[in-house]
Amino acid sequence: MGLSDGTIKMSFTILPDDLTAAGEASSSMKKMLNQLGVSPQLVKKAAIAMYEAEINAVIHGGGGIADIIIDGQKIEILIRDEGPGIPDLELAMQEGYSTASDEIREMGFGAGMGLPNMKRYSDELIIHSEVGKGTSVKIIVNFY
């Protein structure tokens, strides 16, 4: 956490294969934004986008790390994993496209809405992915 630069930085660990623990980081983030007095609709946007990214890291990425950086203007959510990576990003961005296993789908996840939702609920979405190395997703939600 930086004290002097007027930003708040927090880091969370995303555990692999634990869907019940997924969402804890976005819950903590939600609490923080509420304490800052960010408007409810923006908190909701950030929460949905982050939750989707977190779930992806759990399902596909074998867990990872979630970093959030808040300054007075925006929140940046950075989620990194060292999973298999996304071979065709354009395809992955399509609604309904999913590579999740049947098991995951039976649990109500993997409907192919993760990335599209992230795009819909963020003001900026930057994805870097390399097959065999991992994926990093940067979500930005502006406060104004």
Binding site: M1, L3, G6, I8, M10, M32, Q35, L36, G37, I70, D71, G72
Partner: peptide, 12 residues
């Protein structure tokens, strides 16, 4: 909000 940020930093 600026003060809230400071407080949240200290809080954490």
């Amino acid at each position: 909000m600026v003060k809230a940020m400071k407080k949240l930093e200290t809080l954490e």
